[in-house]
Every structure is written in structure tokens, then in C-alpha cells.
Write a protein that binds this DNA or RNA. Structure first.
Length: 424
RNA sequence: GUGGUUGUAGCUCAGUUGGCAGAGCACUAGGUUGUGGUCCUAGGGGUCGCGGGUUCAAAUCCCGUCAGCCACCCCA
């Protein structure tokens, strides 16, 4: 019986893996350029972490987690997002034990959400994310945004838009929520079914609904900016000013709301062309209450997560060419059994000398071997038959020019290194 | 969880009114007994997603189911 990968889970095959390695390398290089350090946390956490962290009322926790009991009866959950686990690890390992101690961490890791798959949406997806703890100033928000945007720029992504908004600190957010409910309640009948329900559970989300009925009802709603405390207002203005100064183009979007309960103050989302309906490629925000909520000191934090599958989709749609670099390959070809036997020893020597080699041990025709070498994009073929065995030499054939030369075995390694050097 | 749509060779797909399961590409071999890419010739490869039903006869019609894709919800 044939067994497929579970719904919404995807194999990343050799033909694609090099792209992953490339964008992962860009992510690491860029994060380290900003002096963020990599952290790797477990794929599973106690379920309570996400309930408390992401929020009991958020959709992600209520209906999208992979949750199960282990054999001891503990409830575990596959991580649905990156921040909560990093905060837990930072607290547990005393990385942010004291106020004023700064920790800047990044990760590249899979997340799991039980959803119906569609374009740009899977049950396992991967994110590059970064979290900065200990600094409440808007400079830290902007450093995160700069890192994120630099990452996209280095990957070659062109069509993208940064949306930004502020919901203010806790009291500001609550005040705005109440005001919005007061504004929308009389119009409840005009809202879509989903939003009528959200009016109680998560009214802020009605702001960024796609339903035209909701958009019409929301049109005259008061903006969050009117409910920000003085301090929150100053914070947000400073963020915008710093973005201006660093030449980052953004759009103030008063309807931008994000799905995690822990966000306070600044929040942002980057959208990209070519992604279909799920056009968010990454998002982030400040979460000044989260560390304390999860049992740490009152340490502020800010960070982002960026979806790598969606980045690759966007790069493809925008026809961005990633440059593939691979090691030049030498393909050993044997005319007969004796040559094949000799090449088995030779290939080991060449590999130990640091030269990537391949050969076909099955005794097929030379034509078939050459064809295979061509298919695998070998740079050089090393051909040995009866004549070469007797003269202790090998033919080296350059597959792109077709030129061929005879080289003695004693000089083989240096000759190959010479030929391959300009190909790296 | 809801809706739409598509499942035929490794891949992309055709298949008429229900009447022998097809093409292109890819693969293997030969043309060339020591040389790839181009070309020519031949060959291999199928649970027509799966299960049931109608029929003399089903890839084709009906019912169910599973999966992929797309959209809603939500999010990266």
C-alpha cells in the first residue's frame, strides 16, 4: 500500500534544497551582521506555553495546534510560531535574567498549524525569525525591521510592501478595543457572519477583514492612533522617523492587526507580489508584556517571523534568479572490468584529496557512462581503458569544450585541481 | 471547519456517443566493439486515485471515499 506524506506536509527534494540552503545562508549572514545569535529550541513545548503566550482566544491556539498527550499524560504541542519558545528558552537559561540585559536571538525553524492547505499555506512551514530582548526604545523596533528588509533585499525580492501600525501599550489597546466595539455594535447587522462572531471574541480583527460588508462598516471607524497614550504615540512617531532616516519605505496602515494576542505598540507586516491570497511574507511587532507573562522579569521584547516557503514562492513569481553554486564534479569512466576495478581505488584517492567524484559501478557501456556524466553536469570525465591501465595514465576530458588530454596517474591530483580551480 | 475544481505512463497532457490505453518529453538499447550533448531506429513502462453500482461492455455514466490545487476562515 502506498503511503503519502501527511496532508499539508511537503518534501523538499534535491532539486529545491539548494535554494533553501541559499536563503538560509543569507538569513544567517544577515542576522549575524546585526549581531543576532542563533538559537535552536525544541519543536514541542508544553501546551500551556502557547496557551499563555500566543493567547487563549487566538485562532491559532483554539483551532490550529497539533496537540497530543505524551505517555505520561502531559499535553504537548508542536510549536505554531517561533516567539513563545524562544522567550521560554531565554527565561529558562537566564539569557534575560535581569532588566537591562540585552539578548538578540534568531532562528530558522519549522512551525506547525493544523489548517487546510492552499497556496502559500502548509501544515508545516519554516520561518526565519529574530527576537530582541531588553530594549524598550523604538530604535530596537527599527533594527528588527531593518534586518528583515535587508534579508529580503539580499534574496533579491523586489515587489514588497511594509505595512506598519501601532495599537499602543496594554491600556491603549484595551481602550481602543472598547471604542471599536461601541462603534461597530449598532452596525452588527451589516457585518459578515464571521465578523459578528468576532465582535465579541476579537473585534480588532474586523479591521483587516476581506469581506466587503465589513470593510464598508469599518470605513468610518475611529483609528487606533486616537487612543494611544502619549508615550505610545511618541514611540510610534520615533519608529516612523527612524524608518524615514534609514530610507525604508513603509505604509501607515491603521487597519493592520495581527493574530497574536501578545503584541503591544508597534506591529508590522510585509506583503509581496505573486503569493496568491496569502500575501503576507513576514510580520512582527513589539511584545513588552510577554516575558513577564511567561514567568520572567518585566523585560521588553520585539521581533519578527518570516515565512521561507512564501519567500521562495515570491522569488519564483517575481522571476528572481538564484545563482546555484555547486562543487565541480569529476566523473570516472571505465572501459572494462579491469579499469572499473582500478577506478574504484582511484576514486577513493581523489575523494580523499578533496575532489568530488562519481562513477557508475554497474558495468554499462562507455556511451551510457558519458551520458550519465553529462546529465549530472560533471565538469571533467576521467576515462580509463586498457591502454591507460598499461601506461599508468588517464584521459581527462573537459565536458564543456570536448578537449581531452592524457595525464599520468602520479600527476593526476594536481592536474585535476588545476583544471577545477577556475570552475569553483 | 466550509466552498469550488482536478485526479490517465517518471513529467505535461489527449482520450469523440460507453466499444482494443494514447502522444510529446524523459528513460533503456542500438546506429558508433574507446567518447556525452544533436540526429535516426527500436524497446520497456499503466490498479485510468480508491471502493461500489448501472451495462453485453466503463478512463468515460451514477453513488461514496481519498488526495492534490485554489478560495473562505486564519496566517508565514
Amino acid at each position: 500500500m502506498k503511503i503519502n506524506a501527511p496532508r499539508g506536509f511537503q518534501d523538499i527534494l534535491p532539486a529545491q534544497v539548494w535554494k533553501w540552503q541559499m536563503i538560509e545562508a543569507i538569513a544567517r549572514d544577515t542576522a549575524e551582521l546585526y549581531h543576532f545569535q542563533e538559537i535552536r529550541t525544541p519543536v514541542v513545548e508544553y501546551s500551556e506555553l502557547f496557551h499563555r503566550g500566543v493567547g487563549e482566544s487566538s485562532d491559532i491556539v483554539t483551532k490550529e495546534t497539533f496537540t497530543f498527550n505524551d505517555r505520561g499524560g502531559e499535553s504537548l504541542t508542536l510549536r505554531p510560531e517561533g516567539t513563545a519558545g524562544v522567550v521560554r528558552a531565554a527565561i529558562e537559561n537566564n539569557l534575560i535574567a535581569q532588566e537591562g540585559v540585552r539578548a538578540k536571538l534568531f532562528y530558522i525553524a519549522p512551525n506547525f498549524r493544523y489548517e487546510r492547505p492552499q497556496k502559500g499555506r502548509l501544515r508545516q512551514h519554516h520561518q526565519f525569525g529574530a527576537e530582541a530582548f531588553g530594549i524598550a526604545e523604538p530604535e530596537q523596533d527599527v533594527e528588527c525591521i531593518q534586518l528583515q528588509m535587508d534579508f529580503y533585499r539580499k534574496c533579491g525580492l523586489n515587489e514588497l510592501e511594509l505595512n506598519i501600525n501601532s495599537l499602543g501599550d496594554g491600556p491603549s489597546k484595551q481602550g481602543y478595543r472598547d471604542a471599536l466595539v461601541a462603534f461597530l455594535s449598532p452596525k452588527k447587522g451589516q457585518l459578515g457572519e464571521d465578523s459578528q462572531r468576532r465582535l465579541e471574541s476579537n473585534p480588532l480583527r474586523i479591521l483587516d477583514s476581506k469581506d466587503p460588508r465589513d470593510q464598508e462598516a469599518v470605513a468610518g471607524a475611529p483609528p487606533a492612533s486616537g487612543y494611544l497614550s502619549d508615550q505610545s504615540q511618541r514611540h510610534f512617531q520615533r519608529v516612523c522617523q527612524l524608518l524615514d532616516e534609514s530610507g525604508i519605505v513603509y505604509r501607515l496602515n491603521p487597519n493592520l492587526v495581527r493574530g497574536f494576542d501578545y503584541y503591544t505598540e508597534t506591529l508590522w507586516e510585509v506583503t509581496a507580489g505573486g503569493l496568491g491570497a496569502q500575501n503576507a511574507i513576514g510580520g512582527g511587532g513589539r511584545y513588552d508584556n510577554l516575558v513577564q507573562l511567561l514567568g520572567g522579569r518585566a523585560v521588553p521584547g520585539v521581533g519578527f517571523g518570516s515565512g521561507l516557503e512564501r519567500l521562495l514562492i515570491a522569488l519564483e513569481a517575481q522571476q528572481v534568479e538564484l545563482k546555484k553554486v555547486s562543487q565541480p564534479l569529476v566523473y570516472l569512466i571505465s572501459q572494462n572490468d579491469a579499469a572499473r576495478q582500478a577506478n574504484l581505488g582511484l576514486i577513493r584517492q581523489l575523494r580523499q584529496a578533496g575532489i568530488a567524484c562519481e562513477m557508475d559501478p554497474s558495468g554499462r557501456s562507455m556511451k551510457a557512462q558519458l551520458k550519465q556524466a553529462d546529465r549530472e553536469q560533471a565538469t571533467v570525465c576521467l576515462i580509463r581503458g586498457q591502454a591507460e591501465l598499461e601506461s599508468d595514465s588517464a584521459q581527462l576530458k573537459n565536458l564543456s569544450t570536448g578537449q581531452q588530454q592524457n595525464v599520468s596517474i602520479s600527476q593526476l591530483v594536481s592536474a585535476l585541481i588545476n583544471i577545477l580551480k577556475p570552475c569553483k
